[in-house]
Design a protein around this nucleic acid. Structure first.
Lengths: 213, 213
DNA sequence: ACAGGGGACTAATAGGCATTAGTATACCCT
DNA sequence: AGGGTATACTAATGCCTATTAGTCCCCTGT
C-alpha cells in the first residue's frame, strides 16, 4: 500500500491505473467532494475498501489524478515555451493547447471545479500551470499589435485566450444542442481551432485605439 | 409551506429571502450535491429542518435560486434583443452582460456547475438563457466582417464571447494572485471590459482570410 | 381575550459517506 | 513445497445527509 502513486509507478492496465481512470472521469464531472469512492469503485468493478490497497485515502487519489493530468498536459507545452516569442509561435502554442484539451477534456474540467470550489492542492495547481503562462510574458520579437504589445494588457489577453480554450471544454454540454453537433467531434475541433486562431490573428492585426483611455 | 417560491412572493428581508441568499452563494460555490442544507441553515442562523417551512425540499430551493438569478439576469438583456443588429448594439450587449455578471457572479458560477455536472433543471436553463442567444443570430445591418458575417461561424463566435465573459467570473480565483489584483474590483472590471470590447472590435475590423479553408 | 397559524425548535429515521480491521485467496521467490 | 506479499473481500465504525414528525411560541385578526 504505497503512500502515493507516481504516474510511472502505475503499469498500464493495472488496477491502480483503472482506478485513476475512473476517478479522473468522476472528479472531472462532479468535483472533489461530490465524488464518492463508492462510485469510483463501482466503475472499476471492485469494492470501495479495496481502493485503499492502492491509495492512502480519497485526497491521495485526487492528487494522483491531478498529477497525472498535469504531467500529460505540460509536457508538450513546456517545449514550446523555450525560444523566441513570435506571432507564429504563439499561434502554434494556442493550437497545441486546444488540441491537448480536446484530446483529454478532464484537466480543464478539474481546473474549473478547483477554481469554483477549491479543494486539495488548488494552490499547487495554480503555480504549476498558470504561473508559467504569466512569467513567460516576455516581449515579442515581431510586432504584436497594441493589445499584446501593451504590457499592462498582455496578462489579461493571456488569461482571456486560456479561458476561451478551457471554457469551450467546460461549457460544451450546454451548447451541444445549440450547435447541432457533438462539441468533441473532429469537425467541431476544427471549427473551434479556426475560430480561436482567427481571433488571435485579428488581435495581432488590430491597429485601432484600445477602446478606452 | 408553499410548493415553490416565486421571486416576487418573497418579501425583502424575510427569512425566505435570506435562505435564498445563503443558498445562492453556497450552490454557486460548491454546486448542487456538494451543498448541504445544514450549511445553508447555519448561514441563515436557523436549524436545517426550519428550511422546510419555506421550501419543499432541496431541489425546490435550488430551482428557486436559479429562477431568481435568471429573472434578474435576463431582464436587462431581453430589452437589448429587440431592434436592429449593428456593431454598436452588439458592443452594448456585450458590455451589459459583462456588467451583469460582475454585479452578481453567482449565475455564471451556477451555470458552470450545471454544465459540468448537470443537476436539476439544467435543460430548462439552456432553453431560457442560451437558446435566445442563438435564435437571435439574425444578419447584421452594417458590415460585421468575415467572421461574424459567416453564418456558419457566427454561432461559434457568440458562444466564444459568452464563454469569455463567463469564464472570467468562474476562473477568477485562479488568477487572483497572477493578476495582482482582485478580479472583482472596479478597476479589474474596467480592464476586462476594455479587453473584451477591444477583442470584439478587432473581430469586426478583421479583414484577413479566415485561417482555414 | 382568544383562536389560529406561521415559523421556529428538538428528536428521530434511514441512507450514504470515508475509513479501519480482519480475513481469505492467488501468485512469486526461495 | 511453502512463506510472504499483493490485493481482493466482508463487517463494522462514526459521522453527515435529507427529510419527517411532533411540539411550542408568538403575532395577528376577530
Amino acid at each position: 500500500m504505497p503512500d502515493y502513486a507516481l504516474p510511472d509507478s502505475v503499469p498500464p492496465g493495472s488496477t491502480a491505473e483503472r482506478i485513476l481512470d475512473a476517478a479522473e472521469d468522476l472528479f472531472a464531472e462532479r468535483g472533489y467532494s461530490a465524488t464518492s469512492l463508492g462510485d469510483v469503485a463501482d466503475r472499476v468493478g471492485i469494492r470501495s475498501p479495496s481502493l485503499y490497497n492502492h491509495f492512502r485515502n480519497k485526497e491521495a487519489l485526487y492528487r494522483a489524478v491531478m498529477e497525472r493530468l498535469v504531467m500529460a498536459f505540460s509536457g508538450p507545452i513546456t517545449e514550446l515555451r523555450a525560444g523566441p516569442i513570435t506571432q507564429d509561435r504563439v499561434l502554434e502554442w494556442l493550437e497545441t493547447i486546444v488540441r491537448q484539451h480536446h484530446a483529454n477534456p478532464n484537466l480543464a474540467r478539474l481546473l474549473q471545479h478547483a477554481a469554483l470550489s477549491g479543494g486539495p492542492a488548488t494552490g499547487e495547481l495554480i503555480e504549476q500551470l498558470f504561473r508559467p503562462m504569466f512569467d513567460s510574458s516576455r516581449p515579442f520579437e515581431d510586432e504584436p499589435g497594441p493589445v499584446l504589445g501593451d504590457a499592462g494588457l498582455q496578462p489579461w489577453a493571456v488569461m482571456a485566450f486560456n479561458n476561451l480554450v478551457m471554457s469551450y471544454i467546460t461549457m460544451a454540454p450546454m451548447y451541444r444542442d445549440l450547435l447541432g453537433q457533438d462539441p468533441f467531434s473532429e469537425s467541431a475541433l476544427e471549427q473551434q481551432l479556426k475560430l480561436v486562431k482567427t481571433l488571435l490573428q485579428a488581435v495581432f492585426e488590430y491597429r485601432g485605439h484600445t477602446m478606452l483611455s
